[in-house]
Design a protein around this nucleic acid. Structure first.
Length: 139
DNA sequence: GCCAACGTTGGC
DNA sequence: GCCAACGTTGGC
């Protein structure tokens, strides 16, 4: 199983909104970045990801999972962009802020810090474990 | 609201 | 195929 991080502005699409979509989840449309697209192509159903709120909050607030593998993005006319479906799995009881990530030596080289503008990022096993511990996530 | 960082585009 | 210009993102 691989791990990922999905970034979203909460006033556009928040983790609460994802939770409301239930088991079916939501199409993660609108990604127009090649690296992010490649990351999504590498995803498999059941892969897990962090849900990060940018701008507002700037913290990891939830755990989600890939509900559907990469497929054409319905909001794209050119046919070159794809998206996956994700669904909410659990809250992060103690959200992990960007400031904390930066202050934690083991997390300081996460993509979240080094590639701030990438909206879909890979997360390593070690980073995943540590953040789940720090956030008191129960899965 | 500003500005730095970075991806993308287009001219050569 | 390189590189400058431009647009967008996101942290502060």
């Amino acid at each position: 199983m691989k791990y990922w991080l999905f970034k979203s502005e909460p006033d556009v699409f928040s983790f609460d909104m994802l939770k409301k979509t239930g088991k079916k989840g939501e199409e993660w449309t609108g990604v127009r970045n090649f690296l992010a697209r490649n990351n999504m192509r590498a995803m498999e159903v059941g892969d897990r990801g962090f849900f990060y709120h940018s701008n507002e909050g700037k913290e990891i607030v939830g755990i989600c999972e890939v509900a559907k593998a990469a497929h054409p993005d319905s909001t794209d006319d050119s046919g070159q962009w794809e998206c996956v479906d994700i669904r909410a799995v659990a809250d992060v009881p103690k959200p992990i802020s960007l400031a904390v990530v930066k202050k934690t030596p083991k997390l300081a080289k996460m993509s979240l810090v080094t590639s701030a503008r990438l909206s879909v990022q890979p997360v390593t096993d070690a980073e995943w474990k540590l953040i789940c511990e720090m956030g008191e996530v129960s899965l």
